[in-house]
């Protein structure tokens, strides 16, 4: 039983890791394609938030932590990305 649950946890982490690498490739490709503009910036920030959420909930194991800790880290991520988005918007011509 315990062996099976550890194997499931390992497989889950492996899939998430591959998804994180794919998301990184997407960010890289957008950069290489020289795409710009508010929609692209929003997409890049959404990808960063999705990646950060995986690391926070799964790798840092905060999915199983007390709610306040989960809120603190996910809140940090959301606030930082929101501030970056706001600054981007302020810098638009």
């Amino acid at each position: 039983m315990s062996h099976a649950s550890h194997a499931i946890a390992d497989r889950r982490s492996t899939l998430l890791w591959l998804a994180l690498l794919a998301a990184t490739a997407l960010t890289w490709a957008i950069g290489e394609g020289h795409a710009s503009g508010p929609a692209i910036a929003a997409l890049l920030l959404a990808v960063a938030m999705a990646k950060g959420t995986v690391v926070i909930l799964d790798f840092m194991a905060l999915a199983r932590a007390p709610l306040l800790w989960r809120i603190a880290l996910l809140g940090w991520l959301a606030l930082v990305c929101a501030l970056i988005g706001l600054a981007y918007w302020k810098g638009m011509p």
């Binding site: 990184t24 960010t27 890289w28 957008i30 950069g31 020289h34 710009s36 692209i40 910036a41 890049l44 920030l45 990808v47 960063a48 990646k51 950060g52 690391v55 991520l77 930082v80 990305c81 970056i84 981007y88």
Partner: peptide, 11 residues
């Protein structure tokens, strides 16, 4: 994960 898009990519 935030630093890379912020400094290298978002334009």
């Amino acid at each position: 994960l935030v630093l890379f898009p912020l400094v290298y990519v978002i334009r």
